[in-house]
């Protein structure tokens, strides 16, 4: 039974990979060829533009949402204040609502305030859906350490900013980094929300893939998939050290 599942899991990918080397544009096997890889690397300027946008948006939105989320998590975890319940609920909802709702609502917002759709709106959208994840991840890290070290810092003369920068942030760093990485991953992957808030000329990799799919089957997509899969595997292996660091203690 397990093998059935595994076959189900991998079969599509195997087909994808195999046909990326197909000499024909159709799904008829016509011999080995690297032409689609050639097409991918040398003839797809729009695709690489989109890829560049994806990376840019991922890095910038992950950075902002990590900063906002870390501060927010610290505030919620250690203090009580009047709008705390509101923040907790408001930042929990995006995690459970369907992406289409978030995408459509942002589109309507931008239309209502007259903000033109483009990279900026994509950036805003990405920060918005990343923020709850960072809040969640950093909060759980805050839960894990001995809080008396914060009192000790005050006791020894630290002002709030000292305690934050010299104690809280260094000790929560694994959580902060985890939040940042999750944000980057989600941002690179996102399709639905980005689809609704992107304007003409601002494309990300998923959006570009979507438009390619819409055009019909093209083995360039296969080639791209293979590159992406290979890239993720290489990335995963080379960052094992980071994972160890995040999950220590």
């Amino acid at each position: 039974m397990f093998t059935v599942t595994m076959v189900f899991f991998y079969a599509p990918l195997v087909v994808l990979i195999v046909f990326s080397f197909n000499n024909s544009k159709t799904m008829h096997w016509e011999g080995l060829s690297l032409r689609w890889y050639h097409e991918l690397f040398f003839n797809s300027r729009d695709l690489w533009n989109a890829f560049g946008n994806s990376v840019l948006i991922a890095l910038t939105s992950a950075s902002l949402s990590t900063v906002l989320g870390t501060l927010g998590a610290i505030g919620i975890y250690w203090y009580n204040f009047r709008f705390k319940k509101y923040v907790q609920i408001a930042s929990f909802l995006p995690l459970i609502l369907p992406e289409i709702i978030i995408g459509v609502s942002l589109l309507i917002l931008f239309a209502a305030i007259g903000l033109k759709l483009g990279l900026l709106t994509i950036f805003i959208a990405h920060v918005t859906f990343n923020l709850p994840y960072v809040l969640l991840i950093v909060s759980s890290r805050l839960d894990e350490f001995d809080h008396s070290i914060i009192e000790a810092a005050y006791d020894l003369g630290a002002r709030e900013i000292d305690a934050l920068l010299r104690v809280i942030v260094p000790v929560s760093m694994p959580g902060i980094i985890a939040g940042f990485l999750v944000s980057i991953t989600l941002s690179l992957e996102d399709f639905v929300i980005t689809f609704f808030v992107a304007g003409p000329g601002a494309s990300t990799l998923p959006l570009h893939i979507y438009s390619m799919i819409r055009f019909g089957v093209s083995p360039v997509i296969n080639a791209l998939s293979v590159v992406l899969i290979a890239g993720s595997i290489i990335l995963a292996f080379s960052t094992q050290g980071i994972y160890k660091y995040i999950f220590q203690k």
Partner: peptide, 16 residues
């Protein structure tokens, strides 16, 4: 943080 009083905590509270 401004008092001339310092504390040794029960859990030691060393910065890890």
């Amino acid at each position: 943080n401004k008092r001339h009083v310092n504390t040794v905590f029960q859990s030691y509270a060393l910065f890890p």
